[in-house]
Design a protein around this nucleic acid. Structure first.
Length: 814
DNA sequence: GCAAGGTC
């Protein structure tokens, strides 16, 4: 450490809270020339104290300010902040950042400004892991403002003169390992909490009628590594009570009255569940009723005062004696602290002032307890007496009581759930989230929701609701803080495990749904959970620009690529109904922008695609993929027969249908103009022609023909697949219709150009391009396309060949 | 909108 007098240096001192800055400044400035000056910083709570002090012969001008706990927060990058922005599984790998939140910027600016004028910085944060982490947050900010700061850490455990002076004369370096341990905790808590909270909220809210919430749309079904084990304690006790079967037992009791008082003797054996045995032993006693004293043991009994200065003990006793909630107690404690009556209540400061009389009979001042002893008559070895009463009594086993707040705090304390300062928050969270209720006896029982959630995870076989996970994390953090394990190693291992666990839990979500179904009615709202199931990301949504488009398979087996921002964003690309398998690959499209657009490996059902199309296809939904577009046109999409019954559009088929069309417009290129953003049946270049026109000229000089099935325009297209390159076909441009016919299957083998005016004037009865040569018989009088035999073509099924329906509704499809 | 940890 530098020293040796001479030039006065400026030292920036930072404490964890304003009260400590004030107290330490008061101690160090005592008897110093110049006394102490106070000035305001940018933050109204965090004053700056100035005084002179000498550290190891080095004259120092001390500036002493503070933060208010953590200066920084950890959050996901903006891209992952919105709930629908990504698959919750991605939250295990999504980048996170530590930053100074808005309400701490004033403190940050004060630190920056003061750091610039100082040569040294002394970190006076609390001496625990969190304090060490805050020290590095402060350091981060101050070093940004002044790279040349010399850094010191003051270690102290009590705000008393001797300790503070000693601390500042024996400064050390901050402990990176302690801080690392907190970084690990923060990151794990965030990733686990956010992923599970999003998952279970989106899965269950809306899927059930949650009658306790006035508006369950805003309901959050949170999961946290502390709150869930706390709920677990409540549920476990509740189940224990439920499972209890009362059982009758028998016990022999004896009392003896003498001049000195009454003595009650308990049966050494306790009790018997067998009535016959009990009666037999009792009858033996009655037959020989003289009692003999066989052992006399005197024992001093001590009564200990409650553990002093313990936050949890305070909360337990306030609950027991005043029926105050732990949260309420902490508020009162805070007030008492602010007014100078008690020491800081949120972290243990179990150190008494030198003036305290610890040989203090505590029962004289603590009136809530008494000696409570009773006088027992004196007995001597071998003494005989006749019992005053000798009875055979029955009793019934009782279940344990519901957990009281004191019990709950005890469980949490024992299992290491939360800290002194946060335990009451976790308990309150259970009530706020409708997971548990507290009765008039301040005892906790789970709500239906709380029980269902724990039951769901329990049925999966996971102990996510037990304290072991937190205990394991605590163990790992300890290993990081002592250097036994590295931060990156623990993070990687733990997150990998939790990611696998999350993934498994999602696979087994049925267990959660089943458990919920025991307690709640199913809801048929459109935002029900199953529709939120997510798949792999294909591209960023070009419509809302906020969320990802992911590949999904609907319950009916059809595939689509939908925006995770649903229902706010309804962007969706429906894929051909003939897709049997689809998976997003790591190949990106080099044509489509904005990228990346990940290609999808498709497998089509062979019978449902024209013979010249390959069963396997590596496709792109960005608009560049002609084959995919043709198959959509030929086979139709999965939306056609599912939008009214299931999938995203449940309960709102119109919206779904419109969304489907809107999004086909957005992604698949138009058959007319080759632009993305609309389909050929909505092509702006064709707008003036209108759907009622029965024949339309297309850009290449060909005309379109009204579809036999729906009347929408069919246009002549040219196949570019290996087997049929150059072969022409007509296909209906309505996204609602699958009409398709090879041109050479029409009569005459070649279509004639339609007569636009004739078609328009005669409607469907006009001369169709596909009509056979002069065979305008009865069959074909009102259709555009007829076969070589003069039969009207009504479309054909690729599976069974039946012209009466299309492949996607074929009964043989299963 | 999500965790848990500081503190005002």
């Amino acid at each position: 450490m530098a020293g040796g007098g001479g030039r006065v240096i400026r030292v920036l001192n930072v404490a964890e809270k304003p009260s400590v800055a004030k107290a330490v400044s008061g101690i160090l400035s005592k008897n110093q020339p110049g006394g102490i000056r106070v000035r305001d910083g940018r933050s109204r709570y965090n004053k700056i104290f100035e005084f002179n002090y000498t550290i190891r012969n080095q004259p120092c001008q001390m500036l002493f300010t503070s933060v208010t706990g953590h200066l920084m927060e950890i959050e996901f990058h903006e891209r992952y902040r919105k709930w629908h922005s990504c698959d919750p599984l991605d939250l295990y790998n999504a980048p996170v950042r530590k930053f100074v939140p808005e309400d701490k910027l004033d403190i940050k600016r004060t630190l920056e400004a003061e750091a610039r004028s100082c040569q040294w910085i002394i970190l006076w944060l609390d001496c625990d892991r969190e304090g060490e982490n805050i020290a590095f947050e402060v350091l981060d900010v101050c070093r940004q403002a002044n790279h040349n700061l010399t850094v010191w850490r003051a270690r102290f455990s009590a705000l008393i003169d001797r300790e503070i002076h000693q601390s500042v004369q024996t400064l050390v370096q901050p402990n990176q390992l302690f801080s690392d341990a907190v970084d690990v905790r923060q990151e794990i808590d965030l990733r686990i909490g956010a992923s599970f909270t999003r998952f279970q909220t989106m899965l269950l809210r809306g899927a059930f009628v949650l009658d306790f919430a006035t508006d369950d749309r805003n309901l959050v079904l949170s999961y946290g590594p502390c709150q869930f084990p706390t709920l677990g304690f409540v549920v476990e006790r509740y189940w224990e009570i439920q499972a209890h079967e009362p059982e009758e037992f028998w016990t022999i009791n004896c009392t003896h009255n003498s001049d000195e008082g009454t003595a009650t003797f308990n049966w050494m054996r306790g009790h018997l569940f067998d009535y016959t045995c009990g009666v037999m032993i009792y009858e033996m006693c009655i037959q020989e009723p003289i009692a003999t004293v066989t052992k006399v043991k005197q024992q001093e009994k001590l009564k200990y005062p409650p553990h002093p200065l313990s936050t949890i003990e305070l909360e337990k006793r306030a609950s027991r004696y005043f029926r105050m909630s732990s949260e309420q107690t902490m508020k009162v404690a805070e007030d008492l602290y602010q007014n100078g009556f008690i020491s800081y209540p949120r972290t243990e400061t179990d150190c008494f002032s030198d003036k305290t009389d610890l040989r203090k009979n505590y029962l004289d001042v603590y009136r809530f307890e008494s000696w409570g002893g009773s006088v027992i008559p004196t007995y001597s070895f071998g003494q005989q007496f006749t019992p005053t009463t000798l009875t055979l009594d029955s009793g019934v086993t009782r279940p344990p009581p519901l957990l009281s707040e004191a019990d709950l705090l005890g469980c949490m304390d024992k299992a290491g759930i939360g800290t002194d300062a946060t335990m009451h928050d976790h308990i309150k969270k259970l009530l706020d989230r409708f997971y548990a209720i507290k009765d008039s006896n301040t005892r906790f029982s789970p709500t239906k929701l709380g029980e269902a959630l724990v039951m769901g995870y329990d049925d999966m076989g996971y102990e996510l609701w037990k304290p072991y996970l937190r205990a394991m994390m605590e163990c790992d953090m300890k290993a990081v803080s002592t250097g036994t394990k590295r931060k990156a190693e623990v993070l990687e291992t733990c997150l990998q495990q939790m990611k696998a666990c999350f993934s498994d839990a999602r696979t087994n979500k049925g267990k959660l749904l089943e458990a919920m179904a025991i307690f709640f009615e199913r809801s048929n709202r459109s935002s029900s959970g199953e529709q939120q199931a997510v798949g792999a990301v294909v591209r960023r949504c070009g419509l809302c620009l906020e969320s990802d488009m992911v590949l999904r398979q609907k319950p009916d087996g059809n595939f689509m690529v939908g925006c995770l921002g649903y229902p706010q964003c309804r962007n969706v690309v429906w894929l051909p109904g003939s897709v049997s398998e689809a998976s997003v690959t790591e190949n990106t499209c080099i044509t489509c922008s904005p990228g990346p657009v990940f290609k999808i490996q498709f497998k089509f059902r062979q019978q449902e695609i024209p013979p010249d199309y390959s069963v396997q296809h590596l496709g792109c939904i960005g608009g560049c993929d002609d084959i995919l577009r043709q198959l959509v046109e030929i086979c139709g999409t999965g939306s056609r027969n599912s939008s009214n019954t299931s999938g995203r559009g449940r309960g709102n088929p119109t919206a779904s249908s419109s969304a489907q069309r809107d999004n086909s417009r957005a992604q698949i290129s138009c058959a007319y103009c080759r632009q993305t953003g609309h389909l050929s049946n909505d092509c702006p270049s064709q707008a003036s022609r209108g759907r009622t026109a029965r024949a339309q000229e297309v850009d290449n000089g060909e005309s379109s023909i009204p579809c036999n099935s729906c009347g929408a325009p069919c246009i002549l297209r040219t196949a570019n697949t290996a087997n049929n390159r150059g072969r022409k076909f007509f296909s209906c441009q309505s996204s609602e219709c699958n009409f398709f016919v090879w041109e050479d299957n029409l009569s005459g083998g070649r279509a004639e150009r339609a007569n636009t005016s004739a078609s328009t004037s005669s409607g469907r009865g006009g001369r169709g391009r596909g009509r056979g040569c002069g065979q305008s018989g009865a069959h074909s009088s009102n259709v555009s396309f007829v076969s070589a035999t003069g039969e009207p073509i009504t479309g054909r099924c690729f599976i069974c060949g039946d012209p009466g329906h299309f492949a996607n509704v074929c009964p043989r499809r299963g």
